[in-house]
Design a protein around this nucleic acid. Structure first.
Lengths: 231, 231
DNA sequence: CCAAAAGTGTTATGTGTACACCCATGA
DNA sequence: TCATGGGTGTACACATAACACTTTTGG
């Protein structure tokens, strides 16, 4: 007979808020790691597929029922990653547009769910994450940053209709660099299936020429990729 | 109480044989899928890390104790992927140089372990793989092919000392394309940390100028990547 | 009018590609 | 000497990067 282990799912849910890449974390009330923040997640049901479990946990803990993108990230199975019992956790990466934001849900003592800019996670005034969740978030952020290069994933951070400037700001926030708008435009438009023009324009927000609107195209990969400069 | 599930590890072990990318499979004697071929793998022990389990299964079933590369591939957790009982399987990808080959181990009725060219897996005269192992092998092969582009992983298919032609043949076998030797050479040598020259030459094998020998460098990523043409 | 944001044009620079050519060895 | 594979040089196509410039809106 095989040893039976607990299997859980944790979700790294990323979005863009005010030009910063943010991750959603949930406040833990009880030990271990009481008062720390943790990723939304929970145990997999006996007859539940992993992907379905990720969506269920997300809806249950944050109210988020649809994501722009959901993919399996990696499985964390260190023998002692949970001090209580052996838990193998399948992590997922989910991306969400700016709006609608999941409303922070009321808790015993302050908001239970909140967004946190990923750059603040390493600093001392950032939140303390429970278990091995710092590593999981780090892996999720790195996966997202890398996938922006060679997939049209950036559009998952945008609403259904978006401008090229919206799309460019995704890259700029995730990579922490400034991209040249003219060159970015040409690059995106010359990649078949990245975006589809809608033939409409935005109403300008406080001055400036109205931008054309686009929706996500059918491409699943960018050829050639949109490479980050450094690394 | 969380439901307890069985957690297993399966390993996609790839190598190059006669210029073809091959995967190691094990013959199943017992049902389900008796007579079919399956990936080496087994259940994770109660206090065993996942990576350690992958190495243990590999050694136990194939005699392979070192790999050029070992990384987690993906976790397969469909509720009915094993007809007997719910099993969540963490798949690993392992790469091995041409030699030393793991010796096929004797079994009840023919060799128990054997290499199979990955191109033959889809054809009708190829082996029938058990469970969802066709998909796992497919994912593993695609991961390996993709990682050749932007990591120095190709060297994991080579022995400790290798020539640039050896390295090039890895790409040619994995991608099924012919690469221009002069351009390949320049590309590899201009990528810092990809390979390190040893200042020695091979004794030529049957005519031709002796080639310079190299060993793996310290780079973990190729910038810029070595892109496949098509896709 | 000016400021701001979107979008177009142009040019320098670099990288990938194709292929001609030279080098060193075995037979 | 030829065949074979290793290694160098070079010219062209193409992609990226930098930035000047035009267009369209609000104030």
């Amino acid at each position: 007979m095989p040893p039976a282990l607990a299997v859980s799912v944790d979700v790294v849910l990323l979005t863009l808020r005010a030009g910063r890449l943010c991750v959603l974390v949930i406040r833990r009330d009880d030990p271990p790691f009481g008062g720390c923040w943790a990723l939304p997640g929970g145990f997999v049901d006996r007859d539940e597929d992993l992907d379905a479990s990720a969506l269920r946990q997300l809806a249950a803990e944050t109210g988020v029922t649809t994501t722009g993108h959901l993919e399996q990230l990696r499985t964390y199975g260190g023998a002692h990653r949970d001090p209580r019992v052996r838990v193998v956790s399948v992590a997922y990466l989910a991306l969400l547009p700016n709006l609608p934001q999941p409303q922070p849900q009321p808790g015993r003592d302050g908001p239970r769910a909140r967004w946190w800019p990923v750059e603040d996670l390493d600093s001392t005034d950032g939140p303390t994450l429970a278990f091995d969740h710092p590593r999981i978030v780090g892996d999720g952020v790195e996966r997202a940053r890398a996938k922006l290069e060679y997939t049209p994933l950036a559009a998952a951070f945008c609403e259904e209709q978006f401008t090229l400037a919206d799309l460019r700001r995704v890259y700029e926030a995730a990579w922490g660099v400034a991209l040249d708008p003219p060159n970015f435009r040409r690059k995106v438009l010359s990649t078949p299936g990245f975006v589809v023009p809608l033939g409409q324009r935005t109403s300008p927000r406080g001055g400036g020429r109205p931008a054309e609107l686009y929706r996500r195209g059918s491409a699943v990969a960018l050829h050639p990729p949109l490479l980050r400069r450094s690394v």
